[in-house]
């Protein structure tokens, strides 16, 4: 399949859809190139208050910080914008990329002395298949779509691929879906870190109302 056809599909993350099932994580560990290790992380935001979870995949930055800080030039970005795992002969396991990536994606496989990260299932996407995580995701919080499919399947959403971390602005190949009407052009990640997890107010509000119910379950227990 040609590079053009491959480019026609884009990887989207829609955090509002995530249900925390870990299918993505489990499927990622099945890849032959990193068997038993997941290159995706599922973050549980604040389980005491909300069931909210968020999948963290490599965003495949246009100017990848991981590659920029690599002293051994081990991290390559393909022509079609996929930032690959460190090349084994070059990687010196210095951990620079692990510390520098603003999204916290690269992981050091200490037993192998090798940095490993998501390469967008290059073995699959390069032959026209969807990445494993976006294939299995039961809520399609991770989705790999053509522009047509995006328009048809996500009429209520809009893609954003610029992020701000303090002073640093980053543009990525992977795009995040936000509600169509939301006035968001750039996702300010530093600010978002201080927001309570979604569903938190619901839990507080609804279950507090429960206590006032005249059935007064609380009073009896």
């Amino acid at each position: 399949m040609s590079v053009d056809a491959r480019d026609a599909r884009v990887f989207f993350v829609d955090p509002g859809r995530c249900i925390g099932c870990q299918s993505c994580v489990q499927a990622c560990t099945e890849c032959d190139t990193h068997r038993g290790r997941s290159m995706i992380q599922l973050d549980v935001l604040d389980r005491a208050r909300s069931p909210q979870t968020a999948p963290v995949v490599c965003m495949h930055c246009e100017s990848p910080t991981c590659a920029e800080v690599c002293p051994a030039d081990a991290i390559k970005r393909t022509e079609d914008g996929v930032v690959q795992s460190a090349r084994k002969p070059r990687c010196i396991a210095c951990n620079n990329c692990v510390l520098a990536c603003p999204f916290g994606v690269p992981k050091m496989a200490s037993s192998l002395d090798l940095m490993m990260k998501c390469d967008l299932c290059y073995d699959r996407t390069s032959v026209g298949l969807k990445p494993m995580c976006a294939s299995v995701c039961p809520s399609q919080a991770l989705a790999y779509l053509t522009p047509d499919e995006l328009a048809r399947l996500r009429p209520a959403a809009r893609p954003v691929n610029t992020f701000r971390f303090g002073a640093q602005a980053i543009t990525t190949k992977v795009q995040v879906l936000v509600p169509r009407g939301a006035p968001v052009e750039v996702i300010d990640v530093t600010a978002a870190m201080h927001e309570p997890s979604l569903g938190h107010e619901v839990a507080a509000e609804v279950f507090d109302a429960v206590l006032e119910g005249a059935d007064a379950p609380e009073g009896r227990s």
Binding site: G16, R17, C18, I19, G20, C21, S50, P51, Q52, T53, P138, S139, Q140, L153, R154, P155, A156, A157, L198, G199, V202, A203, V206, F207
Partner: peptide, 27 residues
């Protein structure tokens, strides 16, 4: 879940009845 989220993309309102705030109920 994906069927329900697809319905929501096209404007559905989702009502959940449950004693627990399940992952579907969250949003």
């Amino acid at each position: 879940t994906n069927y329900i989220w697809q319905a929501r993309e096209h404007g559905a309102r989702v009502i959940v009845v449950d004693p627990r705030l399940t992952p579907l109920a969250r949003t």
